[in-house]
Design a protein around this nucleic acid. Structure first.
Lengths: 112, 112
DNA sequence: TCTTATGCATAAGAAAATTATGTATATTAG
DNA sequence: CTAATATACATAATTTTCTTATGCATAAGA
């Protein structure tokens, strides 16, 4: 994997953002969605994802709903009310961060 | 600090990039430069910076030159030949990463 | 029938920060 | 004059957040 060491710290925000726009998602679905959106550039490993989901749930930002599809288990996660508020803050922070990174690595880029 | 948990993994590349364009810099100067470039958004802590510089030096990407200015010590770092090559690769990787993050958090943004 | 895909989970270890110190000199403000 | 801030380096303890390696189980495709 190319960017294996790069996205530390932003995984939680990515999860929140995806749930915010998709309504509800299950773990495996999240890994596939990220892979698709970034054209394979970013791959979320299960070892990172599941603990992250559990932690966000423990923090009260997510809630779970278990479903059984095709005899296989799925755990759908969605934002709680508190989760929606936090998503706004964390997304703003992440966007600022991305802007800052751009400023550092390539000041010629502009955002429109 | 706002983004304290966000820039993990990219510090090394930021250091390399700055040294690439500035020629040589010393540690404290790097912290100030990053603060200035990002308008205070990103603050590199000394606890992160100095070990990172030492590690990059140990990897053969940086070389040091000690100077005394105003009776105070300064350690100027600059890229080795190998460091310049690595900078190209790591910068490209970081730029890809930034693009991917944008794709995830704000697909409406475009880069020009 | 064997591999790949789907779907969850956790444990061990590594990487990369934060936080808290420590040392020392120079400058600025009260 | 003296206390606080800025400059300049460094490291140790701890925490956070990943990677890697497993493990279990069902479904689909070659």
């Amino acid at each position: 994997m190319a960017n294996s060491k790069l996205y530390k710290g932003s995984l939680n925000t990515i999860i929140l953002k995806l749930l915010d726009e998709q309504g509800k998602m299950y773990g495996y679905e999240i890994t596939q969605k990220v892979k698709a959106l970034t054209k394979g550039e970013l791959k979320i490993t299960e070892g990172a994802l599941y603990p992250a989901l559990h932690k966000l749930e423990a923090e009260g930002l997510l809630e779970v709903e278990v479903a059984k599809v095709d005899n296989r288990l799925r755990k759908y996660y969605k934002l709680t009310e508190q989760g929606e508020k936090e998503t706004v803050n964390r997304l703003a922070e992440l966007e600022d961060f991305i802007r800052s990174m751009q400023q550092l690595v390539n000041p010629k880029w502009s955002i429109s």
